[in-house]
Structures are given as structure tokens and as C-alpha cells.
Amino acid sequence: MKTFIKVIVFSAVILSVYTIFPMTLPQQRSEPPPLEEKVGALTMDKFIDIGKDIFEGKRGGFGGCILCHDPKLRRAPELVNMHATSEDRLKDPRYKGKAKKGEEYLRESMMEPSAFVVAGFGVAGSNDTKSPMLEIKKYLKPWEINAAIAFLQSKDGGEVTVQPPTGDEGGGEKEAGAGAVAAPPAPARTPQEFFQKYGCGACHKHEKGGIAGALAPDLTHIGSSGAKRRPGMSARDYIRESILNPTAFIVPGMPPIMPPGFGDRMTAGEFEMAVAFLADSK
């Protein structure tokens, strides 16, 4: 019995170490993309922004084009000057696809990646006739593919030839013309919902807000500490500026990691609610 107890205790200690060690690592829950995303009318700038998010893997369920089309990794061709490169590819003697214009080429590259494989980037042994690229249409909706095309065309100064959703095509998930249309995502109703929706907890901490990030300044008392950050600027104005233009002032000792453009994503109501809540956090 003594041996049995010794063995059990030893096993329990080993198992505890194995269990506790991973708990000390960063804990991240990855949410699936929404089942039915509803998109309303979009401006061209917003449309291109969504394309950029897709490219950089900031939309749920898809890792982003940059995972492979990274010039450092060279898993896939680098995507530079695509507004011009797409036209050049059509003139390549090896091109046997159906596209007639650059925009069509970009769409075909995503829908049917093997229609044309850039030399040296095919599946090993396929003599550049098969592309290793994943079937993008399984991850992105037609309007999202258009957004990615818009981003690729615009990022190096080219003309965007695809049109953003106008909101006139119908509701829900209907894929009419350039995109699906309907109401925008429901706005956050409480500061806590706001923090969750915009992922503030990944970096910031706010005790009442229910977030506990450790990479960026603690916002628990930002209502009082914010008033001292910039001479002549109230806490409310400072918070407002920090959301809209995060690089305007970096708290000493903190890394400049806050992404720009948060202000563009939120509704005016959400923005004002967050500013008021934070300014009252004293």
C-alpha cells in the first residue's frame, strides 16, 4: 500500500506540473467568424480597409494572404504593384486562363489558383501547373474577395476597378453584384461590450471594464492620469485623441503598438460612450 501511495503521489505531481505550466502561458480564445455577417453600404475607403484586413489576416477564420505572400518567407509570390503586374501576367505566354482584365486575373487567382502559376511557385513535381494556394472561396465571400482585389489594386497607387457594396442589392447574405448588403453589426451597448468588441483587452487593463491586458497602459484610472499626460489637454480630450490618433502621444516606457484606425471602425455612439466611461474612470 505504501508503494501504491508513493506512485500515486509521484504521478499526481508530474501531472500537476504538466497541467500548471501551460496555464502560465498566454491564454487566447479564438472565436470563429460570425455565421451570418451582414454588411451594409460601404464607402470605397472602408471597402479597401476591409481588403487590407483580409490581406493581413485580421478577419476571423482566415489567416491572411500575408502568411504566404510574405517577401521574407517566399512561400508565394510577393504581391507588389498588382494593378500593373496583373495586366502583365495576362500577356505571359504561359497564361491559359479566362481573364481579360487585371481585375479578372486577380479574382481568377483567388478562385482558381491553378489557372496560372507564377514560375517557381507551383507544387513540387507539378512543373508549375498546380498551385499550392488554398481554395480561397471557402474562406471568403465574393464581396470580401472584391475587397481584397480593391486593396491589392490600391496599395501601390493603382486604380481600383471593383465597386464596394452599395446597400441596394438586397438584404442578408445575398451575393448580388459587388457584395452582400444589410444592416451594420449591432453597436456595443455597454463599455464592457465595447472593450470585447474591439479587443482592447489584448493590450489594456481596466478593472471595471473587465479587461486585463499587460502590453499597454492600464486604463483603470485614466480619468485622472490622462489629465496629466499632455499639458493643457483634459483627460476627455486626451482619450479622444488617443483613440483617433494613437501615435500622437506615446506613454513613456510603452511600445507604440496601438493600431491606427480604431476610430473609423466604431460608431459615433460607441466612441462617445467609451470616451465618457474612460474619462470617468478616476
Partner: peptide, 30 residues
């Protein structure tokens, strides 16, 4: 596979479709 029952073919639409944090996963393993 993330949020797929059958990868890219049949989606997991259940409330449990999220990928759990490491701590959650190791507790189940233990």
C-alpha cells in the same frame, strides 16, 4: 480544424465552435 467539423466543408455552428485557450485544453487533457 478550428470551426469546422469537416475542414472547409461542414462548419461547426455549435456554441462550442471557438478554439479554447491553452489552459482550458490542458485541463481536459488532464
Amino acid at each position: 480544424r478550428q470551426h469546422w467539423h469537416v475542414y472547409t466543408i461542414m462548419r461547426d455552428a455549435s456554441p462550442d465552435a471557438y478554439t479554447p485557450p491553452i489552459g482550458h485544453a490542458v485541463l481536459v487533457a488532464t
